[in-house]
Nucleic acid binder design. Structure first.
Length: 372
RNA sequence: GCGCCAUUGGUGAAGUGGUUAACACGCUAGUUUGUGGCACUAGUAUGCGUGAGUUCGAUUCUCACAUGACGCC
């Protein structure tokens, strides 16, 4: 089936709704953990379920290179392959490919993108059609259109022709998309330029995708600029389709996104900072490399319901992190993902109760209380 | 007892008669946003075993002493 979004309640622009998928119906706003190579690093599907995760992400570029989409198809598709019976969204690979190109004038062509494999340096060529075909074979529930994700800043003229090319790529991808059980999302680009965001948004919506995402954020711009990009991008999206902000965010960015009408988020932050020893808490991010936790008998976060906080002390987690033990990154990944999932659970309640503004304000106040 | 070599931060060590004693680990902080790579950035010895001497200037040269390794009696 194609995903179906239902708007149930809104508090100003903030939306509470549901998204129905092949693997059940989930409430939004929602946070999706990132499982690039068909695994949310260090965590099992059972653990993700325990944290009340909905959709998870996998990546077209990485799975194309290893093990290859045919192997995944041979193993029965992504769900069977990784033993995950929840919905999966595959990113198109654009973001990865654009970090691998050398020369944007030469390597990005109308046809597709030339780049070198990060594994063996082999010349690769990814096109909008190929990205969609790979995603069809991976058999994710939601595929993303192949887009260009320009860095920040680029000139207006560059962004304009990039937006137009991304629109042509979206149409080409849609034309070859053939998996009836898979939805296809369009991506709005346009950088910080209001008129280009508007143009990108309206033209993408004309193609009638199953959902829409805001791309091109968190690429080096400052926060106020990022929030503007979200506003410009969301403005012309239809009410009855889900809105996905790609690659964002930290707790505050999620709140800022929801306030502007975003429904789903994904971000590597909770798992990446976990592997580097850091944890989200209500009073800000804490770093377990810091000596102050050496003898701390308390949980990672007081009052947290996650597996880590129910069973382990800060002193133990710090020991695991400073000795580079695998379990340390695992325990903090569990906590950090649960933290963001809990955050969106609370956000949903706040929207339902029409007090999102108040919730956001008090959350941010507390979160920033320790950091300066 | 004699000979020989060594002694530099928390650790392993590089180095020079003359501005801020290399590097690595550790330690102390910070960074991370559709994960190419999982790491990156910054700080961390007012001092070179102790004492004396030579010198404009010694961690570097000389002497004595201490400590340690090795060899010989």
């Amino acid at each position: 089936m194609k995903v179906k979004y239902t708007l149930l309640h809104n508090d100003k622009k903030a939306r509470y709704g549901t998204i129905a998928t092949n693997y059940g119906t989930y409430e939004t706003p929602m946070f999706m953990p990132v499982g690039t190579r068909a695994t949310v690093k260090s965590l099992s599907p059972e653990e993700l379920k325990d944290m009340n995760c909905g959709i998870i992400l996998a990546n077209t570029y990485h799975l194309w290179l290893r093990p290859g989409e045919d192997i995944v198809a041979h193993c029965g598709g992504l769900h069977k392959f990784m033993n995950w019976d929840g919905p999966i969204l595959t990113d198109c690979g654009g973001f990865q490919v654009f970090s691998l190109i050398k020369n944007k004038e030469k390597d990005i062509t109308e046809e597709g993108v030339h780049f070198k494999s990060h594994i063996d340096g082999k010349d690769m060529f990814l096109t909008p059609e190929l990205s969609i075909q790979i995603q069809n074979k991976l058999d994710s529930d939601i595929a993303m259109s192949f887009d260009e994700c320009p860095p920040y800043p680029v000139t207006y003229d560059y962004m304009k022709q990039s937006v137009e090319r991304t629109l042509r790529w979206a149409a080409r991808g849609k034309a070859v998309h053939s998996n009836e059980n898979q939805s296809l999302f369009g991506i709005v680009q346009g950088g910080e330029f209001e008129d280009l965001r508007e143009y990108s948004c309206k033209e993408t919506v004309k193609m009638d995708f199953d959902g829409y995402s805001i791309g091109g954020t968190s690429v080096g711009e400052d926060k106020p600029t990022m929030y503007k990009m979200i506003e410009y991008g969301v403005k012309y999206l239809p009410e009855d389709k889900v809105r996905y902000l790609m690659g964002v965010g930290d707790p505050i960015d999620i709140l800022e996104g929801v306030e502007r009408g975003i429904d789903i988020f994904d971000c590597v932050l909770p798992t990446r900072i976990a592997r580097h020893g850091q944890a989200f808490t209500r009073t800000g991010k804490i770093n377990f490399n810091n000596a102050q936790y050496k003898e701390d008998l308390g949980p990672v976060e007081e009052g947290c319901d996650c597996y880590t906080c129910r069973n382990y002390s800060r002193a133990y987690v710090r020991h695991l992190i400073t000795t580079d033990e695998m379990l340390g990154g695992r325990l903090l990944s569990i906590h950090n993902i649960r933290f963001l999932v809990k955050l969106v659970e609370e956000i949903r309640e706040a929207i339902k109760n029409d007090n999102f503004d108040e919730y956001k304000k008090s959350f941010i106040e507390k979160y920033n209380s320790k950091n300066k």
